[in-house]
């Protein structure tokens, strides 16, 4: 049962890396934020996966159920999701400001404009 046993984690890893790639390789500032979100959501998937107990149910106490999935990762991820959204909101606000100041949201273009500032 080795292979299916780890399959979930692998999916999470692949997704993480897709997000990570978007963050570091893409030049568009909004898309970077999207990448960041994908990256984070994948980490959440990873957390939830480890909380799952085979045959368990959602951790809501009820008569007659013996096996529950682990509630702690759920709690952590609830927090993390909110933190992630906060970060996203802030990042997007920054993007709006950058757009105001530089009239572009492409990284290479802001870099060029910054170099001009430097030369002044």
């Amino acid at each position: 049962m080795e292979f299916p046993g780890l399959f979930n984690y692998w999916v999470a890893v692949v997704l993480m890396m897709a997000g990570f790639y978007i963050v570091i390789a893409q030049g568009n500032l909004i898309k970077k934020v999207v990448g960041l979100n994908i990256f984070q959501v994948s980490v959440f998937v990873f957390y939830i996966s480890m909380g799952k107990v085979k045959g368990g149910t959602a951790p809501i106490l009820d008569e007659g159920i013996q096996l529950y999935s682990n509630p702690l990762p759920h709690v952590l991820i609830l927090t993390a999701i909110v933190v992630g959204v906060a970060t996203t909101a802030l990042a997007l606000a920054l993007v709006v400001r950058i757009r105001d100041a530089f009239e572009t949201i492409e990284e290479d273009e802001t870099d060029a404009l910054e170099a001009e500032d430097e030369a002044r």
Binding site: L36, T87, A91, L94, V95, I98, F102, E114
Partner: peptide, 9 residues
């Protein structure tokens, strides 16, 4: 702004 954005990422 860009510095903050880069730092944020």
């Amino acid at each position: 702004l860009t510095a903050a954005y880069r730092y944020l990422i």
